[in-house]
Design a protein around this nucleic acid. Structure first.
Lengths: 342, 342
DNA sequence: TACCAAAATACAATCGATTGTATTTTGGTA
DNA sequence: TACCAAAATACAATCGATTGTATTTTGGTA
């Protein structure tokens, strides 16, 4: 039952060999002769020996483990990113500890502590909506843990990020609406502290400016971008004394909330109001009308972020070159923005 | 920069106290006087001391870590289950290492080795489609690691499982089709080695029998239940010399593949063929026609499985009572099966 | 002040593997 | 056979924290 107790010392004792030689043999060191190695490996298999990584990691002060912090595992974008991270890590012999902040700063701080105590070799994260203060992340870096942000990043100096070009995507989405004849365009934005939402908003602003459309502050609505927020937003928009003909939502979920509400009210999308979302959730291609959105591959972002992190883990801290990788994203045109006057 | 090097020995030396006392103070032992504790804790904070879990875990031979193995993280059902597991584990102070088998037995075996080497306290898993041989799982148990299956389980004697009643759900789905006037009903089944698919098939068979409908072997199609398999299956069904009027698919993905193909061919769902799926993926409520399916809450299953595993970890191995928890599942009636003659 | 039990603290071994250094063995050469 | 460099193996410390036992300190009582 309990053959998990076999250690190199047991093998050493049985074979009347020193445990250091056993260790070297099992690590295929050239300092041990083939004959001895074979004998040791045979005995190890016979006894069902499994190396204890805890001991090994402690001695080497390296865990071959990455920590991943996302706001919510079950969101499609994040589970795809995790899949990309896991695959990349697995190939390089790393394990992945997954944690979710559930958008709470307190939980995020606590998770950072736990990962730190477990001595993960690096952390990949997408920050929570509440994260305005970066002290816990700066501390983590000070302790020598490598950190790479993906998607939702922080404005920490000298850090690596894997992002999409939120500014460009925001610009493209908004210009697409303008090209489809929209002139009064609302923007559903996220929490103001997050860079990605700041940049999507900047893209929106730039597109309006390019086309000589005045930015109206009351058309820019910040929220947590949940489905209910989309509903609240669209209600506000509909109560305005003038007619809004386009919406650029900083995520799909809020856009879908708005679409559902508009459907209930009998207001036509895209004829009355054209809508563009952001993220390309699975549901977006299936909903009626299908949602025009910005495609961002979570899998690709996760893979890239993990590759970057692993390359940094190999370097000495002095040799690390921080970089920000911007992945391409593209507008997927669907029915929610396809107007006649296009 | 490198204050990750602070150990209890550093604190001990600075305060001229033994490291064992420091350790006890930081663990709030009653063997250390309040005055000493305060002094130690103050100094620990000052130096930015973080306990090294590797060392602590090695000594205690307990890691407060659970391993989770799923076929694919990004599948909605599994990411929901993982979310449920993570939340439960987090509350009890456990971390979660997530791995995906990608439906490959080789990868699954390797993952089991890795988790075992990392000395996780327990493993929660849903086996891959290729898993026919359970040796690697029996070995894991022999080494004293607790194991709980959820959803896709193995027929290992004396093990704990958290499942839904696949037989009953399969029965309900099939009877629902019969009640909607279907008489020649095909079943899309999964790999034959998996218990869940065996049981769904048994439910299908029992419903047919109850209503005096003969089981035709050529109407039961086994596959990996991907979207393309759904397309292949429906092609086979359409090429039969008689007309099939109902399909019970063992998952939503294959059902959706079939629906899309039928739409292309201009065959009406549910009028010509009624379809029932299984799992209630997000997409299923949104597709046209919306898909009647069996609802299974991944979050609930994950939560229940984690709770069960954690309770077993606390017990001595001799005191463990293995149990199989069957969660309720229910049929969600949508358009894909709503026939006039109902 | 002497004594003593209880409380507080120190000592030392341990979890299992790794690794720098010291010692022994091997096998070739003079 | 003596010698020696190279190869193989053994010794011993170490990674940090924990914990059973031994020792010291405390503070109350006779």
């Amino acid at each position: 039952m309990e053959n998990n107790k076999v250690t190199i010392h047991d093998i050493a004792k049985i074979l009347s060999i020193d445990s250091s030689t056993v260790s070297r043999a099992l690590n295929n060191s050239s300092r041990v002769t083939k004959k001895t190695k074979d004998k040791i490996i045979a005995k190890a298999n016979e006894l069902g020996y499994k190396r204890n990584h805890l001991a090994s990691n402690l001695r080497k002060s390296k865990t071959f483990t990455l920590g991943v912090i996302v706001p919510r595992i079950s969101r499609h974008f994040f589970s795809s990113a995790i899949a990309g991270i896991e695959e990349t890590a697995y190939k390089k012999g790393y394990s992945v500890i997954i944690c979710q902040s559930l958008e709470q700063l307190e939980r995020e701080k606590n998770i950072v502590e736990i990962l730190s105590a477990n001595r993960v070799d690096g952390v990949l994260m997408s920050v929570s909506m509440e994260t305005e203060n970066y002290q816990h992340l700066e501390d983590l870096k000070k302790r020598g843990t490598r950190l790479v942000f993906f998607d939702r990043h922080c404005d920490i100096p000298d850090n690596s990020n894997v992002l999409i070009d939120d500014f460009q995507a925001g610009f493209d989405a908004t210009e697409h609406l303008i090209n489809n004849g929209c002139r009064i365009i609302s923007h559903f934005s996220g929490p103001k502290n997050l860079e990605i939402y700041k940049n999507r908003f900047k893209g929106y602003k730039a597109a309006l400016q390019k086309h000589g459309i005045k930015l109206r502050d009351e058309l820019v609505l910040s929220s947590s971008l949940m489905e209910k927020d989309g509903v609240e937003n669209i209600k506000k928009i509909l109560s305005l004394p003038y007619k809004v003909d386009g919406i650029f939502s900083a995520n799909d979920v809020a856009a879908i909330g708005a679409i559902q509400y508009l459907k209930e009210r009998g207001i036509k999308v895209p004829e009355d109001i054209a809508i563009v979302g952001f993220s390309n959730e699975t549901i977006s291609s299936v909903i009626e009308p299908s949602l025009t959105t910005i495609n961002q591959s979570g899998f690709e972002i996760g893979k890239t972020a993990a590759t970057l992190l692993l390359s940094q883990i190999k370097e000495n801290s002095s040799d690390i070159i921080n970089e920000t990788i911007i992945l391409k994203s593209s507008l997927i045109e669907r029915k929610s923005s396809a107007r006649q006057n296009n």
